[in-house]
Design a protein around this nucleic acid. Structure first.
Lengths: 331, 331
DNA sequence: TTGTAAGCGTTATCAA
DNA sequence: TTGATAACGCTTACAA
């Protein structure tokens, strides 16, 4: 009782393998009566094409991998960033009738396994969620001929096309908003310094504060709520008179709010807080969070579109999407 | 410059295809010198085995699919339930050197595509995240000979083995805790009534309240924060004198807390709140949430272990994991 | 220990 | 419009 093959369907329907293949693949050049007979045989036997055999000959799999750096506490923490990206990618691939395959790069072994998986031809192309450090994998896959697109500008010198957002513009808007509302001692909780999102936002913070002749007050977190809480405590210890803090992610900002409350600081009366991301949580914190919105699902859409274009043999360039300050009640 | 094949490696190393295959698959019956020559040829050509060809002959893929009902707002909302399950599954499969493949069932088309993918032999087995309604897919895959394990007891009559938690015991502990601390009008925000987690928790609530001769006060949500907020407003309108609410998920409880604050109710002074899940968020709400903990990662571990056992041809039975009340400051 | 050869289940080319 | 037949790249008896 193993799986029926094309052969068996063919003999049951009294036709050749080739004809069954045609029917299964929707070719129009098959007589109506035969088509029906084949369909009946398929149904009766419960035939399902063997995808390995098919892809062996077609050299395609019609599936796309999205590789997620799962070591990070971020992907499947309750941060909505990755989920939003995934949703966007998913919608776009849906339309192209491609199967999305998510893979976690949680360990060195997983990293290796995913590499074999992708170079082994299990997928037609690969999407990278934003990476840590200078991961050589995207470049390596590309050099093996696998089409690749990255989310977030790669930290290593790389020719792989990517999608990123305008971190600088977002940070500038946030800090200027704080300055113009009279804040004078503006600290920051930065993201991990091995990710482009962490680095770019901190750089921008330093630059705009430097331009207005103010001192940087910096603590570094890793995008988790817990790290945001710890970083805020640190900042309060370093400079008890700070009156504002720009936090590089909403989730860290949530942790920061808690630390501020515990320290007896009122938000925004004593300390103004600005986050980054604009995930749903931002509307549910107390008070609701002013934050820099990035178009999360749109990142996903764009990633998928670029990859599909790459698969189609078209040339592809990096894309940078806009960010926007959303003002709520924490400033 | 297409991908090198076994054949090419063989001719470069001056041996037969079979020998290269042996080396690549780590057979020990190959002379040291030949093994080295083959490895060199592999490295020089950048050879990577074609997985489709391999799985065509071996009938295995060494990968496992985890199917996620993505229509639900729950999987990739900022609820940590699914992420935790995924992490657990991932850890366990890692140890078995299987590739985890996540697939989203976001639409009818995606549902269909995933079915083809699984029955087409792209994976050796399938895990279902907790489903909506009486999804026939698990049973159907099983009937196609695909090993399947479900998270959450299937709502349809089904022979597919599953992993679930003891919803009843958790709810009973929660309600009794409320009763014993003097609460008299205990409402509930139930989960979606097409999911076993939603149904079982509401049933248990009704049963224990009925047993203590108290009235049920029910609103239904869909496990999202937003629905929790709306449901809480509804409950306050229905019975302004309620003094406690059992919420079927922490995320909905977060929404409920907000609605309570907006209505001017203090927690726990005026209204006690108990959640369900014990995700990280529960420690960061204001006040921190009393909740029923379920062993989320353990669910994932168990799912994976059962499936691996199934793949090994062993018989497998359903598993029900324990729940436990965690008391914080919302009661 | 190594090689030969027969598949694995498809699709695609070419005739008929 | 249909049917042979040759790949696709690999593993695995079976022989040598």
């Amino acid at each position: 009782m193993s799986r029926p093959t094309l052969e068996q369907v063919a003999s049951r329907a009294g036709v050749s393998r080739a004809t069954v293949s045609r029917v299964v693949n929707g070719s129009t050049t098959v007589a109506e009566s035969i088509r029906e007979a084949v369909h009946r045989a398929v149904a009766e036997l419960g035939y399902v094409p063997n995808l390995a055999a098919r892809s062996l000959v077609t050299q395609r799999t019609d599936s796309i991998a999205l590789l997620l750096p799962e070591t990070t506490t971020r992907v499947f923490s309750d941060d909505q960033f990755f989920p939003g990206v995934i949703r966007g990618v998913s919608q776009e691939l849906e339309a192209a009738d491609k199967q999305l395959v998510l893979m976690l790069l949680g360990s060195a072994a997983a990293h290796e396994r995913a590499k074999r998986y992708a170079t082994g031809g299990h997928v037609d192309g690969v999407l990278f969620a934003s990476m840590h450090g200078a991961d050589p994998l995207p470049e390596m896959l590309a050099s093996h001929g696998v089409p690749v697109v990255c989310s977030g500008r790669p930290l290593s010198r790389s020719t792989v096309p990517y999608v990123d957002v305008d971190h600088e513009a977002g940070v500038v808007a946030a800090i200027e908003h704080l300055l113009s509302s009279g804040r004078r001692r503006i600290a920051t909780i930065a993201g991990p310094q091995d990710m482009v999102a962490g680095i770019a936002r901190l750089d921008a913070y330093r630059q705009v504060l430097g331009a207005s002749d103010r001192r940087s007050i910096v603590a570094v977190g890793d995008f988790t709520r817990e790290s945001g809480e710890a970083a805020m405590r640190q900042l309060l210890a370093d400079d008890p008179r700070l009156d504002a803090v720009f936090v590089a992610s909403d989730l860290m900002a949530h942790g920061a709010l808690r630390a501020l409350r515990e320290a007896g600081r009122r938000v925004p009366a004593d300390v103004a807080v600005v986050g980054f991301d604009d995930i749903e949580l931002a509307r549910y914190t107390d008070p609701p969070l002013t934050t820099v919105r990035q178009p999360i699902e749109e990142i996903g859409h764009t990633l998928a579109r670029l990859l599909l274009r790459l698969l189609g043999g078209e040339p592809v360039e990096a894309v940078v999407l806009p960010t926007e300050l959303v003002i709520r009640h924490s400033t």
